[in-house]
Write a protein that binds this DNA or RNA. Structure first.
Length: 745
DNA sequence: TCAATCCGTATC
DNA sequence: ATACGGATTGAC
């Protein structure tokens, strides 16, 4: 038939019909399709002329249901189980085997655990290809089966200077040296480590990595944000000699990101540090995985299937039998559970050592009525806080002031009815910026010169919270003549010089200072503790300890004043520096209430009809329990909660961006549903009219499913089945399923 | 009896 | 999305 007329572009160069490869002609392919009912491998034939390039782990293009899609070749087989006829692999994209068997297995396990698809996990795990980089980076000198010793000399881990222990301060922890010894002996020790106040934790992690390198194995270190990563990078440089490691972070460009990924994959570098997306780094011959400050919510991946970095590392540790180190000043309930089940051992210091390292910590209540007219009271400083700050400054030491929110007056309410003040255009929160005469909207930026309460019509405002900028201003008056530095939001200071100065910082943005702060004043404690969040207490203690750990020991005059009621258990735990006791009580409480991590929990949320149908179809696992559904009022319609200059989410494919200012009210909640850029109700600034009444849009529901930990697999499978049924029938609406969601309320 | 069309289901 | 198979319909 009219062959010539049919083709606009020339027929494939394959004019000669394709013939299956002589050996192992069948390829098992993970296609890049994230539909739950297609979440399995598919078999294709390999053309004889692709047989060389078509190795396990390479990227391929295949025709799937009529269209070309990407995928990874996972395995070559002699024959297929598939009854029907097989198509050919259309193209081997590149002979570079980017997906190792370990990461392929890990991706499958993570998908199963989080009721997601392997395609989604692989998108998190393997960076996009950058062809030029791939070509530029030497095309594989020798056959790749060669021993690790064949790595280029300049990239091998610096010759371990002493074949024995790297010297370090792990001796301050009774179990520390034994843990390092285990790493050196290639034993899969697992530990939960409570860093001492003032601990140079990047150095300790670097020593652990060096011990791993001594044993000629790979190490992977995960930290919450870019600032932490810089410190670990520097410490690794010092411990390994500059070329023995590399870092993986979100802010690298595509080329650099892929270049480093290839260096890791090719085994040229065996010590890797990174932010959360690096948990999937294909480090060869893994001997140690480590994570620091695992309570930080940046370690929860915001893209489907929402895996948590700590959990992924636990999985890698278990399947590869490598050592695991979960560190932090504080201790999460999850870490506590590892200890109580005996899965991991504690690395903690003796009481005396803790006392010698910690500053003096006292609670000062949270009202500043005393001397209400003084500048100190305006700065929300209790007399004790003011005195501690004054004393530190007099001793030429810097003072750290931790405040919950950034901005000037970031949250306003009607002065009469106390309802939150909202923008009349987009209903976003109103706030005062520094030096601004009128409040403006934090979402759309519009200025509202004549506020009128949408609920009661009243015309004046009161501040609900005070931000870092306003606090800095007041502190300046309280301590006249002293330099005031703010570190919050987009403007974060990494380190400051020693000397008298006041640093006002939001949690996670505290600069480090050589020698330590003379004092830390922790404001807003009650507000932090009062958050309606399962993890409010744990999170508050984590933030307090992170700040207090930067203060010099009590013997050197270090003092911490926490602005909260001293009788509260969390405050007590801080004062006594007892993260273990706090975590133990926290875990007991969660067990009592049937909350994670003592049970497996999942949330099912989305459009009401779709959620109801999904719940109908759900096979509740044995001893499982369905809670809800309840209607969800979503105060944050978009996934961008901060309009002016806020860090754009999802810019880098490596995940985690620095953004250390994560006050509770501002936490952007994650994307509202499964769609990657989903903004259900359109952009924030819609509906010009309605200034008051809650305009109900399509109701959204949320249900929780919980099951005993032993039935976690069954729960994942049941949820995956629901998602599969939905996608197979192309059911309308949105349902987002999350296992171990970070926000339960 | 056969083709055109509709619907459901699988996607190697 | 698209492709295929089986059922259904309508015209000879």
């Amino acid at each position: 038939m009219t062959v010539a007329a049919r083709h606009i572009r020339p027929p494939r160069a394959t004019v000669g019909a394709r013939v299956p490869a002589e050996v192992l002609p069948v390829a098992r392919v993970a296609v890049d399709v994230s539909l739950a009912h297609l979440d399995r491998l598919f078999d294709y034939l390999i053309d004889e002329r692709d047989t060389e390039a078509a190795q396990a782990g390479v990227r391929v293009r295949v025709r799937f249901a009529g269209r070309l899609v990407g995928g990874y070749l996972l395995e070559r087989l002699g024959a297929s189980e598939h009854e029907g006829k097989l198509g050919f692999v259309e193209r081997v994209v590149s002979p570079e085997p980017v997906l190792t068997a370990e990461i392929a297995d890990l991706a499958r396990a993570v998908a199963d655990r989080y009721a997601g698809t392997i395609a989604d996990v692989l998108r998190l795990a393997v960076p996009p290809r950058h062809a030029r980089t791939e070509a530029a980076e030497e095309p594989e000198p020798e056959p790749r089966a060669s021993a690790p010793a064949s790595a280029p000399a300049h990239l091998t881990s610096a010759a371990p200077t002493s074949p024995t222990a790297p010297p370090g301060a792990w001796e301050r922890y009774p179990a520390g040296p034994a843990f390092l010894a285990a790493i050196r002996d290639r034993r899969p020790a697992r530990a939960v480590w409570q860093a001492l106040p003032g601990e140079d934790w990047p150095a300790r992690l670097a020593e652990a990595a060096a011990a791993t390198a001594c044993a000629d194995r790979g190490a992977l270190i995960i930290v919450p944000d870019a600032r932490d990563l810089q410190r670990v990078d520097a410490a690794l440089g010092a411990a390994l000699g500059g070329t023995g490691h590399l870092t993986l972070a979100a802010d690298l460009g595509p080329a650099e990101r892929y270049r480093r990924f290839l260096a890791v994959r090719r085994g040229a570098v065996k010590v890797v540090a990174g932010t959360r997306a690096a948990v999937f780094a294909p480090v060869a011959d893994l001997g140690l995985v480590a994570i620091f400050d695992d309570g930080d919510d940046l370690l929860a991946e915001p893209r489907a299937p929402y895996p948590h970095a700590r959990e992924v590392l636990m999985m890698r540790s278990a399947t590869r039998s490598c050592a695991l180190l979960v560190g932090g000043y504080a201790r999460t309930a999850e870490a506590q559970l590892m200890l109580e089940t005996g899965w991991a051992h504690p690395i903690t210091a003796e009481r005396a050592q803790v006392r010698a390292s910690a500053p003096r910590i006292e609670a000062a209540g949270d009202d500043y009525a005393t001397g209400a007219d003084s500048a100190a009271a305006h700065a929300r400083l209790s007399p004790a806080a003011f005195a501690a700050g004054r004393a530190a400054l007099d001793a030429q030491a810097p003072v750290l002031v931790q405040v919950l929110r950034r901005g000037y007056l970031p949250s306003l309410a009607c002065a009469r009815c106390r309802r939150q003040a909202l923008c009349r255009r987009c209903r976003g929160p109103l706030a005062f910026a520094a030096g601004g005469g009128s409040p403006n909207c934090r979402w759309c930026g519009v200025v509202d010169a004549h506020f009128q309460c949408g609920a009661c019509g009243f015309g004046s405002l009161r501040a609900v919270s005070v931000g870092s900028a306003r606090t800095a201003e007041e502190i300046g008056r309280a301590f006249p003549g002293v330099t005031v530095i703010t570190s919050a939001g987009n403007r974060v200071a990494g380190a400051i010089p020693n000397g008298p100065a006041v640093v006002v910082a939001t949690p996670g943005a505290e600069p480090v200072v050589a020698g330590g702060y003379g004092a830390a004043l922790l404001l807003d404690g009650s507000a932090m503790l009062a958050r309606p969040d399962l993890r409010a207490a744990e999170e508050t203690l984590r933030r307090w300890m992170a700040a207090a750990a930067l203060v010099r020991p009590a013997a050197d005059g270090g003092r911490v004043i926490v602005g909260a009621d001293g009788s509260l258990p969390t405050v007590q735990s801080l004062v006594r520096w007892d993260p273990g006791g706090h975590a133990s009580r926290e875990l007991a409480a969660r067990r009592e209430l049937g909350f994670p991590p003592t049970v497996a929990m999942a949330s099912i949320e989305g459009d009401a009809p779709a959620v109801l149908a999904a719940l109908d179809a759900l096979a509740v696992p044995p001893d499982g329990e369905l809670l809800g559904p309840v209607e969800l009022e979503d105060p944050w319609p978009g996934d961008i909660a901060e309009a002016p200059g806020g860090a754009k989410p999802g810019s880098g494919l490596t995940g985690s961006s620095a953004g250390p200012d994560r006050a509770p009210g501002e936490a952007p909640h994650g994307a509202p549903h499964g769609a990657p850029n989903g903004a259900p109700g359109g952009s924030p600034n819609r509906v010009p009219g309605g200034a008051g009444v809650d305009d109900e849009q399509a109701p959204r529901l949320r249900a929780l499913l919980r099951a005993p930990l032993a039935n976690r697999k069954a729960m994942g499978a049941a949820l995956h089945a629901v998602a599969a049924a939905r996608s197979a029938r192309k059911e309308p609406g949105t349902v987002r399923i999350r296992v171990d969601p970070s926000d339960l309320f």
